[in-house]
Amino acid sequence: MSVSPEDVRTVARLAQLAIAPEAVEDLQGKMNNILCLVEEMNRFDTKEVLPMAHSFELCQRLREDEITQEDVSLSAMKLAPCSEANLYLVPWVMPASDDKTRGE
């Protein structure tokens, strides 16, 4: 399998990366080289093999439903590039006619 320029643009959109149009061809080549390396897996029959997500068969550890850590939301909020009244500010999702960049 190989990726086309259109595939690169679609994947970039899914990955939320604003790839420049002139970078697509180079990325396509490099992605195809990696996918070509990955194709090596098809030389091995894995039909009957159980997939392994983890090196140990870990099960999710449960704990009592009680507070174990102090609330760090305020100090975390200080790291935000743009915030107000303990809320993260972002541009309008639905553009307004007169003020598209509120929050910036």
């Binding site: 975390a76 935000a80 590039p81 972002v90 541009p91 309008w92 553009p95 598209k100 960049t101």
Partner: peptide
């Protein structure tokens, strides 16, 4: 670009951000 780390200049909408 919302909660911490780098944020681009003058995003024109959320997806652009």
């Amino acid at each position: 670009g919302v909660r911490y780390g780098y944020r681009c200049e003058n995003p024109h909408d959320l997806n652009d951000l």
